[in-house]
Every structure is written in C-alpha cells, then in structure tokens.
Amino acid sequence: MSHDEINRLAAERPDFAAIAAWIPKGATVLDLGCGDGSLLRYLKETRSVKGYGVEINDLDIVSCLVNGVNVIQNDLDSGLADFEDNAFDFVILSQTLQATRHTEALVKEMLRVGREGIVSFPNFGHWLNRAQIMAGRMPVSRTLPYQWYDTPNVHLCTLHDFEAFCRRCAVDITARSVMMGEREIKLLPNLLGNTAVYRFQSGI
C-alpha cells in the first residue's frame, strides 16, 4: 500500500488513525465486521499487525481477499465460537457496534477472545443529530447516512450511553478519543464529536 493510499484511508475514516495509535507494532488483531478489510490493511501497513477479520457479507469477503487480508465469514450475532480465549491482543469493532443485535453478549465475547477491546461508533448525541430530532425528523448525516427505513443501525447510542453500558457490564474504559472529522474533540465531546473511539478491558 502506498503512502497516498494510507493517507486517503486515514482521511476517509478518521477512526483508523485513532485506533492505530493504540496498537503496538506486531500486535495480533481481530477486526469484527471488517467490511472490505481496509482497517486491517491499514494496520498491517502502519503497525505490522497479524490480523484477521470477521465479516458476513459476501461482497466484502471478496474485497478482503482482493485486499490480501485474512477474513473469516461468520455472523457476529452468532458469537465468536471459532476463536479461543485470549487469542488476540486486540479485538476491534469499528463502526459496527450500532448494527449488532446482541451487543452486550458481543462485547463480552470481545473480551473473552481478546485482552483489550476497541470500538468506534457514530455518536448519536452529536448536535446535528439532536437538531434534526428537534426539527422532528430522524437524523441523516455523513456518519449516519441511512434513512430510518433502511438503516442497519439498531443500537445507536451516545457517549454517555456507551459509558453507562460499560459500567453496567463491568468493562473498564482505558482510553477515549472523540473526533469530528479528522479533528479530535476535547470540549463537550458528547455534543460536538460525531465519532467515538473507546479502548477498554475487562473490569473483573
């Protein structure tokens, strides 16, 4: 992958650079809902990770193979039974959390097969979403590009929601990065950030 391509990916998906920043070189990574394998390819190039993706979509499986990344076709909602306990340094759920059905069970599975978890998701609390709801419509934006009737997103949440969820599930958040585009948001993140990235581990 060329430098241009790496930069293009980083610009298109600002959470990629935030995720990569937490991953040491040579780590083992499992990317759940890996799509076309872009993140794994990015991490392979920038962090020399040994990575595997899990994806259910047929076209994405082919794209992963074209991208030269390992991909296992499987339904995340049926669990991660193919993977052993503590098999990976990191288990990543990038822009997928909101589309999973059994979210709590999946987060627990992430921390069974991985020592640490990383999730990124669109922040439903972003002011643009709030404004659209205030105006009486379901939010549609760059990070939430779907209409209410065709969205795969069944479990949208805000930063506050996710943090409360982690407390309830005894999951320790060890780092957080909130973005608006490529810019990191420090002030009023739940209002001004459109993408949240969390790093966490088991609190028990």
Binding site: K50, I61, C64, L65, N70, V71, I72, D82, E84, A87
Partner: peptide
C-alpha cells in the same frame, strides 16, 4: 487460527 496461519474462510 490457533497456529496463527494466514487463513481466510
């Protein structure tokens, strides 16, 4: 997977 081979399925 256990042996960390490159594998796709």
């Amino acid at each position: 997977l256990h042996n960390r081979r490159n594998v796709s399925y």
